[in-house]
Simulated assay, not measured.
Amino acid sequence: MNRFLNDPDTFVKESLEGLAAAHGKVLRVHQDPLYVHRVDSPVSGKVGILSGGGSGHEPLHAGFVGRGMLDAACPGEIFTSPTPDQIVEAAKAIDGGNGILFIVKNYSGDIMNFEMAADLVRAEGLRVQTVVVDDDVAVKDSTYTQGRRGTGTTVAIEKICGSAAEAGYDLPNIGALGRRVNLHGRSIGLALSSCSPPATGRPMFALSEKEVEFGIGIHGEPGVERVSAVSSDEMVSRLVESLLADQDYTRKSHAWDDGSESRVEVEETDQAIGEGDRVLALVSGMGATPLAELYIVYRALAEHCVGAGIRIERNLVGNLVTSLDMRGVLITLVKLDEEMLGLWDAPVRTAALQWG
């Protein structure tokens, strides 16, 4: 298929060079090892916020680098984890003296490489804590994970923790805040078509015009069920019902304690999203879904929330967490408290998000 593509081997590199050329007042791209960092990093006295993962999910993560969000992002190749040396060098580049928070989506490769990088960074005297995002209600385990996958709640954690760092929070408090946001966030996605990685140009799975893939992952992996296509309102209804029916409210939040060499699991309990709760609602296209269709999805989501007694306090609609050129949608609900709401509203200046 036709693409704006020169060479699959240079796809990520050239895309990031274009990002830097377009947003040079906000971010820089460092080559060898590859990472993206704030133009003013390191910021003295501030906790550094670092995330990353495979490319193909833009604007996640590099598009969220800037004041009020990420200090650095480490992009891997398409759907491939960044390497430990990328993460280590990015962490050192943004170290302002008060430690680094790693925000990691729960995929096996990301977990392994960020854990290795955390050990290496600690060996050089830096303090590190980690928040693992595991918000996808579609699966309990998958080919790529042990436990739930990390998807749309990543955006909320990056923004809220980034604002907390700007406000002067210390590392333990930012880590605890990030884990709290994760426990309050739930996501689920649906695909109308597969994505096609640049290296092959072929869809990763086949769907007829009369089928949809329910519960897809963001790496092009098929969903948990293939069902007949129905109206948009009916598809959204099923997605929202899956979010609201989720009964796994005791969740494992993964972290590496400050100064510890080993991974520690902290079990916390969260109440269900229920009547009267205030939420942040994210409706993300998967890369090739027209914005007009995303607003049709949001219309149905808003109606469902009203019916459930849930108040959408804040929202974002657009491409946030994508899967290359997939046609589909990812819906995320994050239960908000006053602290999280204030930090979400705080000023942000990145390539993809700007307000305040």
Rank of each mutant, 00 (worst) to 15 (best):
M1S: 12
V12Q: 01
V12H: 00
E17S: 01
E17R: 01
A20I: 07
A21V: 01
G24Y: 03
Q31M: 09
Y35K: 02
Y35C: 12
V36A: 06
V39C: 10
P42Y: 06
I49A: 03
G53Y: 10
H57T: 10
H61I: 08
V65Q: 06
G66Q: 02
G68R: 04
D71M: 02
D71K: 07
G76Y: 07
S81K: 09
T83P: 04
Q86P: 03
E89Y: 05
A90H: 03
A90F: 01
A93T: 13
N98G: 02
F102Y: 10
K105L: 11
D110E: 08
I111W: 05
N113P: 12
F114D: 13
V121S: 02
R122L: 10
G125S: 08
L126G: 05
L126P: 09
R127Q: 15
Q129L: 11
T130K: 02
T130Y: 04
V131Q: 02
D135Q: 00
D141N: 15
D141F: 15
S142A: 15
T143Q: 09
T143K: 10
T145L: 09
G150Q: 00
G152Y: 03
A156E: 07
E158G: 11
S163R: 03
A164F: 00
A167W: 00
Y169K: 11
L171A: 13
L171N: 06
V181S: 06
L183Y: 07
H184V: 01
I188P: 03
T200R: 05
R202F: 04
F205Q: 01
S208A: 09
S208N: 12
F214I: 15
G215Q: 08
G220N: 04
G220I: 09
R226L: 05
R226F: 02
V230Q: 09
S231A: 08
S231G: 14
M235C: 13
S237R: 13
L243P: 06
A245C: 11
D248W: 13
Y249E: 10
K252M: 13
H254R: 08
S260A: 15
E261L: 14
E265Q: 12
E267S: 11
T269V: 14
D270K: 13
Q271S: 14
E275H: 12
L280F: 12
V283S: 00
V283R: 06
S284G: 08
A288T: 05
P290N: 10
A292Y: 11
E293C: 05
I296V: 15
V297A: 04
Y298E: 05
E303W: 05
E303V: 14
R311W: 01
N315W: 08
V321Q: 06
L324Y: 12
D325M: 10
R327M: 10
K335F: 00
D337F: 02
D345H: 12
P347W: 02
P347G: 08
T350P: 04
A351L: 07
L353H: 10
L353D: 13
